[in-house]
């Protein structure tokens, strides 16, 4: 083979290997800086203690409240985004005519393009006072507020991926169902949705991963209290918010610094598992 050909091919190899290097760089830096937290606390206390007092003396590094905070806002977000996102996908793919479709699709894409910090601003400066007025709660920056904003952010993810899945369902299935006397709604619920099941589930898992990792919104609107919430109107301190808020204020190499990287390891593992599940679901569909 020509020399130039070899060089060119090698460049494409090196570029591809860079992606693997970056991924390993991320994993290594998390574990290198995060694992030392186990010198200061046991893995059991780290994961299952509610006490997050990183600046007290002696400090306590239990992240259960932070994990709880993350899951509360993420599940809250999914409660909002699954009906809205899936509803939008079904409407666009099955019901809307071409013109409506061409208006709705970019509108929903627009939601995906809005920077998260602007969503955070909206939650802080507009939604929070609104919630205080409407629900008569003392604090507007709480798990409920964060769930609403995160929920809206996840809508375009669920809707675009579900819509892709719905549009790959062959028309012959719909026609067969309609020919057998089923109406539009029955066809959607009993034929089209089940046929697109794996794509829809993947979209929800992807939305979960996006919501649990989203930082700016929970940093700005979740309230910041490291506690296991009694109600949805309690302020919480999800994992990404803790890392973002405290990293700037802690000195490099302190136990607190390592604990924040430890939180990031947990966050990474959760998102990585959700990615693996999607791969698995998608793989199964392809078979």
């Amino acid at each position: 083979m020509d020399f130039k050909e070899k060089i060119f091919q090698s460049i494409t190899y090196i570029a591809s290997i860079c992606t693997i290097v970056f991924l390993f760089g991320i994993i290594l830096s998390l574990f290198f800086e995060g694992l030392p937290v186990l010198n200061f606390t046991s893995i059991k206390d780290f994961l299952f203690s509610k006490d997050w007092y990183p600046t007290m003396f002696p400090p306590k590094f239990g992240i259960l409240s932070l994990i709880a905070g993350s899951f509360v806002v993420t599940l809250g977000a999914l409660v909002i985004s699954i009906p809205l996102g899936l509803g939008a996908a079904i409407y666009i793919s099955e019901i809307a005519n071409k013109r409506v479709k061409e208006i709705l699709k970019p509108l929903i894409e627009l939601l995906a393009g809005i920077p998260s910090v602007v969503y955070g601003l909206f939650g802080m400066a507009f939604l929070s006072p609104f919630l205080i007025k409407v629900f008569q709660v003392p604090i507007g920056l709480n798990a409920f507020n964060a769930s609403i904003i995160l929920g809206i952010m996840v809508v375009p993810i669920i809707s675009s991926m579900s819509e892709d899945a719905l549009s790959t369902v062959p028309n012959s299935l719909r026609e067969a169902s309609l020919a057998l006397g089923a109406n539009k709604w029955e066809t959607i619920m009993k034929v089209v949705l089940p046929a697109a099941k794996s794509g829809v589930i993947s979209s929800i898992i992807l939305g979960f991963g996006r919501a649990i990792g989203e930082t700016m919104v929970v940093l700005m609107v979740a309230g910041g209290a490291a506690q296991i919430p009694d109600s949805i109107f309690d302020p919480v301190r999800p994992m990404p918010a803790t890392v973002a808020a405290e990293m700037g204020e802690t000195a490099i190499g302190t136990p607190h610094f390592h604990a924040l990287f430890g939180i990031a390891i947990i966050l990474f593992i959760i998102t990585f598992i959700s990615i693996l599940i999607i791969e698995f679901v998608v793989m199964r569909r392809k078979k």
Partner: peptide, 25 residues
């Protein structure tokens, strides 16, 4: 296969973790 998994994983990593990676590296 490995590059594909790496791309998909990078696409799903939370942005705050990129911040920690940038800080460390």
């Amino acid at each position: 296969r490995i590059v594909r998994v790496a791309i998909n994983t990078l696409a799903g990593v939370p942005s705050i973790i990129y911040g920690l990676f940038g800080l460390t590296v």
